[in-house]
Amino acid sequence: MTTWSTGEPHVPSDRSTAAIDVQQLHKYFGSNEVLKGIDFHVGVGEVVCVIGPSGSGKSTLLRCVNMLETPTSGKIFVEGDEITDPDADVDKLRSRIGMVFQSFNLFPHMTVLRNLCIAQQRVKGRSKSESVEIARANLAKVGLSEKEDAYPAHLSGGQSQRVAIARALSMEPDMMLFDEPTSALDPELVGDVLQVMKDLASEGMTMMVVTHEMGFAREVGNKLVFMDGGVILEEGVPAEVLANPQHERTQGFLSKVL
C-alpha cells in the first residue's frame, strides 16, 4: 500500500504546465447533448479519476481528449497545443497520448510483439531492432515477457489489457487515457491490471482514468471527478469526495457502488 497518493490537494496550474485542459466542451450526438459545457483539467504527473453512472458522458469526455470523438464546441489543449484546432496535426498529438480501451482492441492478426512494434515503426519511424527493444522492455514491465509470440486470441482478458497498456507505453506517450480498463475483466483478473496502473502512476505518468474502481481512485488518484448528465457535479481529493460527498447525486451514486 502506498500512502503518498491520498495526499496533497491539487493546486491548479496554468495552461502551459497542464497536460490536459478542457474548456467549455459541448458534445452532441444528433440532438442529444451528452456533454454540457465541461471545464476539466489534468496537471502534469496527476492521476485524475472520472466516475459517474453510465450515460453520464465520462467516456465521451475521455474520447474527446484525443479526438476519437469530435467536440461540437469548446477547446481542448494537450500540453498547451490545441488539439481541437482545425489546423492541428491530430495524428502527431495522438502519438503523445496513450489510450487503453475497455475492450482492449489488440490487433488480432498480429503477435503480441508486433502489436507493440507496428505503430512505433509506422508512426515514429523507429527501426525494427529499436522498436523490438522498447516493446520487450514494456512487456517485461507488465509481466508478460513470455507472451511476445502469442496471438491476442490466446490471452486472458487481464493479459490482453496489460498488453494493450504495454502497446500504448511503447509509443512513449506523455500521458495515458484509460477508458474503463477493468470493466470487461473477470473479477479475479482486475488486480493485475490495477497493479500495472499503480506502478505507472508511481513512476509519475499523467493519467486520466474513467473507472468504477473506487479503491483505485482513493488509493492512487490525486483528484476525483464525479460526472452525471453531461456535467461535472463534484470534484476534489478522492478520499474526501468518497467519504463526504457534497452533492446529493454523488451521495446517491456512491451509496449504490460502495
Binding site: 484525443n66 476519437l68 495524428d91 502527431k92 495522438r94 502519438s95 497520448i97 496513450g98 489510450m99 480501451f101 475492450s103 482492441n105 489488440l106 490487433f107 505503430a119 509506422r122 508512426v123 515514429k124 494493450a164 502497446r167 500504448a168 509509443m171
Partner: peptide, 17 residues
C-alpha cells in the same frame, strides 16, 4: 470492429495507414 480503427488512430496512425 470499430475499435480496431480507434486503437490504431489512438497510436497516432493516419486513417490510411
Amino acid at each position: 470492429p470499430k475499435g480496431q480503427m480507434e486503437a490504431a488512430r489512438s497510436l497516432g496512425m493516419s486513417h490510411s495507414r
